[in-house]
Design a protein around this nucleic acid. Structure first.
Lengths: 356, 356
DNA sequence: TGCCGCATTCAAAGCGCTTTGAAATGATCT
DNA sequence: AGATCATTTCAAAGCGCTTTGAATGCGGCA
């Protein structure tokens, strides 16, 4: 038994290029080229090399490859962890799941950096000068996000998940059409006869929340309804805030008959507030939520719990990864965009406006 | 303006060790040692070097450092993304937030690998032979998890977040005392007079769920209550499953008067089922949930929504990271453990058993 | 037969850092 | 003064890979 294990271990002994090439009676050059698919290697040789590599469990050393190629084959995700705003959120988890799929397929590593302070800028400079990543995904852009000009200046390839309204110079992004999603949500409620429509939004210095509000207000004003500040809340999108916001609105003299909510989790808080007030979703108060289609927070199976504007954040992760990789491998190409449209799916949380 | 920018860029020009040492009139050896805190460098020299490094924005190249040191300064997190079970869950996000804090502080990178298939084993072998990581955190251990013997065989330092009941050989882990948490939850409900107590558990081939069930059953049998299979559910811990499980129990001839739930998100589904059935938490059905203290899923502020057994998964992330780093830097030391006790916090979801 | 061109292969020079073993310096001791 | 030693610095040898530029062998062609 002990022997068997030792043999197994021996066969697994780490092997480097030199050893492999000696074993094959070839130069390191040829072996390296055979393995990396260069054309100037005889097909028969390539085959022999590949088999030997597999047999002896040869894996090129990461550090050496990085150094020799001058590329890190790594993509960075920087997560600012201010105690204020929790970026490490469920949306993020699903996004990297999507992106990670693509990285693996393309041979890239994903490097995650949690940055606790305001030294995010230093992190980017570091990454550039140390060559620790080949590109970066920017999460949670603000309306005028300083990271974008910084990365442009550094010349580090990047793709923004979202957009920054106030930045003019072109850059690459993947975003869902937040404005149109919330415009359509508003229109749908209006079409059901609602006139008192609330908004429970994310923090509005975040670009996505800003756009959602704009879309929402556009729908209302187009229908001749003036948005009421008392019906608008903005905050972190968690259960508690959804609950608080809804509670506050229900306490008004004339509460809204419907509400558009920026996240599924906040919507759960809204529902709790309604339950506590003895109100029924759809019948008493209609609710539409934005649904990021998170893997562990499904909005019902066949019939959705909430009527929702849905767009898969995981898919956004895949698209962002693809876009970034293509930029890294194709540096001369200009910026690209991808604007996703959210689906409006009808669930059990909306109904005609109650008759007064 | 253009000029200013160019000067700024010029000053930021990447600099390598050779250039820096020439600039200082010192050898690369001395500069390297000065920067890495070796004692055989005169303090005055060290200072001069450090200042120059800062001034010229010198950052050692990552690939070169890896190669020369034979260490990657990277810690791997492998997330199996089977379409069946969604490991990329909110718990994971908070865990890595905690771990990431510590990695940054200790100068380690965090590498995330999403592995979509059953080729997880290959990933580990790869990491070992390529030297792409110095250590690994094992997530979501099964009762007899094959990763543990594999990593032991490979000789790759690792720490398990959780434990594997059926594995005898010692290994390092950080875990919360799941058994005692659920035993105490059961005992608390018993003390309130409940006798029909349900369990909505995670998938029971996962070690944590197994232990929770054991603790739960221990409490019941110790009180002379026989656990009823109709009151036990096991599944993914998402909102829908919580809802389904509770619905199923409510449809029984004699439904339970209380239930212990394995996650906050599932508990939200439980509450929905109760609401739909016109039942009130605490008054009609008592609910205790396990609460991982997730940053965006707070269980109330002052008064918790749910009575819960609480243990911060973020803190577990910090502890696991610390433990792994100490193992990497101290390879001869034996395995370590850390068993965390969950707090039992009383919220608004529990009350005395209803009088029949 | 001798020369050319093509297909393969190779030796060696990096990539930018760490680390070994030796050298230079200056202080201390006999 | 010469030997000894601790302190500080250095040149050079890796680390394991990629890539450049040169060499080799071979068939085809004049």
């Amino acid at each position: 038994m002990v022997q068997t294990i030792q043999i197994a271990l021996a066969e697994r002994k780490l092997m480097n290029l030199k050893q492999l090439s000696e074993l094959l009676g070839l130069s390191q050059t040829t072996v390296s080229r055979a393995l990396n698919g260069y054309p100037e290697v005889a097909e028969s040789t390539r085959l022999r090399v590949q088999q030997a590599a597999r047999k002896h469990n040869y894996q090129p050393n990461v550090g050496a490859q990085r150094l020799a190629r001058g590329r890190s084959m790594t993509i960075g995700h920087v997560i600012p962890l201010s105690t204020q705003h929790e970026m490490v959120n469920p949306v993020f988890a699903d996004f990297i799941a999507g992106a990670g799929e693509r990285y693996s397929a393309a041979g890239y590593d994903m490097k995650l950096t949690i940055v606790d302070d305001q030294n995010e800028e230093d992190i980017y400079r570091d990454m550039k000068s140390r060559g620790s990543v080949d590109g970066i995904i920017v999460h949670g852009p603000l309306m005028n996000d300083p990271r974008i000009p910084l990365l442009q200046e550094l010349g580090l390839p990047f793709v923004v998940h979202g957009r920054a309204s106030e930045i003019e110079t072109p850059y690459s992004w993947v975003d869902v059409n937040n404005a149109s999603a919330f415009r359509r949500a508003g229109e749908f409620l209006l079409s059901l006869g609602h006139r008192r429509i609330g908004l429970i939004n994310g923090l509005e210095h975040m670009d996505f929340a800003h756009r959602r509000r704009a879309g929402f207000e556009a729908a209302l004003t187009a229908a001749g309804v003036t948005p009421d500040p008392d019906y608008m809340h903005a905050g972190e999108m968690n259960e508690l805030n959804g609950h608080h916001a809804m509670q506050a609105m229900l306490a008004l003299e004339t509460p809204p008959t419907s509400v558009v909510v920026a996240s599924f989790i906040a919507a759960l808080g809204v529902r709790r507030a309604l339950d506590e007030a003895g109100l029924r979703m759809a019948r008493d108060v209609s609710v539409i939520t934005f649904d990021d289609d998170l893997s562990y927070l499904r909005n019902g199976d066949s019939i959705p719990i909430f009527t929702a504007t849905r767009s898969s954040v995981r898919q956004a992760g895949r698209l962002s990864a693809d876009m970034l990789i293509s930029h890294i491998e194709n540096p001369e190409a200009g910026p690209e965009h991808k604007l996703l449209e959210a689906d409006l799916i009808i669930g059990g949380s909306t109904g005609p406006a109650p008759i007064e």
